[in-house]
């Protein structure tokens, strides 16, 4: 409960900060006397803040879902093939049908992201269960191979400059009219919360899931679908943000456990807060230039994570 209040409060403060930090100076008092200030807020600052919040929340939720599904704490979709699969899809769509609309590219990216995730699941099923660390390692290699495929095809098709946009997420390009697809990701993430118990039960393993009357394969497919759609939407609109889905669910699990019905809201707000903090810091450090959100987040997340790991803790949750 305390963690929830802390995250909620932090998110609110960061959200306000995000509205008033940027290249063009904007102060709360400007809103009272300058109509252009409202336009700036409406066209740039509000969309950017919302995009950050949705991306952070949805990616963190996807990380938690995948970790429960494969019963391994060290995986997350952006680095284990789903993100690279999405990039492969957009690349293919851009190359094969440059005139196609955003929705078509989106659909292709979601499909390839799903195929890549299914591939990951099929590969790790063959790994020995006594070696849990093999799963994230194989995942990283698998993601790396797919990523290399993306680069190769982009090189052949003269599309290298696009890759950077998809593979390194950042929010400086977010404007009104350019981020709205992310609402679909928010919607999907909220939908998965309806099935929070089912995903938590998956974490107990196949036998326990079937024993409790879960249609195991069906829930796995629904989970993969949700993860793939969210990942593809994020890659298409703002670009990949690696490790977010890894750090946030692990931090929340250390405090509040793995009962997803209780923890998914914490994970979502934690993810949103971390990306928002990183984005605001990235905007401030070299003002008026920006540092990509992924870079700041990597440092911030690693510091928080290390502190949590080396802090003594109790037996209870």
């Amino acid at each position: 409960m305390r963690l929830g209040l802390l995250l909620g409060g932090g998110l609110f403060v960061l959200g306000l900060l995000s509205l008033f930090v940027g290249v063009i100076p904007l102060q709360p008092v400007d809103l009272l006397r300058d109509p252009a200030a409202w336009e700036l807020l409406r066209d740039s600052r509000v969309p950017r803040t919302l995009a950050v919040v949705i991306t952070g929340g949805a990616l963190a939720v996807c990380g938690a879902l995948l970790q429960s599904m494969v019963r391994n704490r060290f995986v997350e979709p952006m680095t284990t093939g789903t993100g690279q699969g999405a990039a492969l899809g957009i690349l293919f769509a851009t190359w094969a049908a440059p005139e196609a609309g955003l929705l078509t590219k989106m659909a292709v990216a979601s499909t390839t992201a799903l195929l890549a995730s299914v591939g990951f699941l099929l590969i790790i099923q063959r790994l020995p269960p006594t070696q849990p660390l093999l799963i994230p390692l194989v995942g990283l290699i698998y993601g790396g191979v797919l990523g290399a495929g993306v680069t190769f095809i982009a090189y052949q098709g003269d599309l290298i400059q696009y890759i950077d946009v998809w593979m390194n997420g950042e929010f400086s390009g977010v404007l009104r009219g350019r981020y709205e697809l992310l609402w679909v990701a928010a919607f999907v993430a909220v939908l998965t919360y309806m099935a929070a118990d089912q995903f938590a039960i998956l974490g107990l393993g196949r036998t326990a899931s079937i024993n409790l009357g879960l249609n195991y394969e069906q829930v796995m497919i629904v989970g993969l679908l949700a993860i793939s759609v969210v990942t593809a939407l994020v890659v298409v609109t703002v670009g990949a943000i690696p490790f977010l889905g890894l750090v946030v669910p692990n931090i929340v699990a250390r405090y509040a456990g793995d009962n997803l019905r209780r923890t998914l809201p914490l994970i979502a707000s934690g993810g949103a807060a971390l990306v928002l903090a990183s984005d605001v810091i990235g905007r401030l450090l070299r003002h008026p230039f920006e540092i990509p959100v992924g870079t700041v987040m990597g440092i911030l997340g690693a510091v928080i994570f290390l502190w949590l790991l080396y802090r003594p803790r109790s037996h209870a949750l």
Binding site: R73, A200, L204, G205, G257, D258, A316, L317
Partner: peptide
């Protein structure tokens, strides 16, 4: 059927588990 939980047990409390 009684399931078995391997080493990678989720971080659930005993009462959470029983409630499932």
């Amino acid at each position: 059927i009684l399931p078995q939980i391997q080493d990678a047990a989720p971080r659930l409390t005993v009462s959470d588990l029983v409630a499932f």
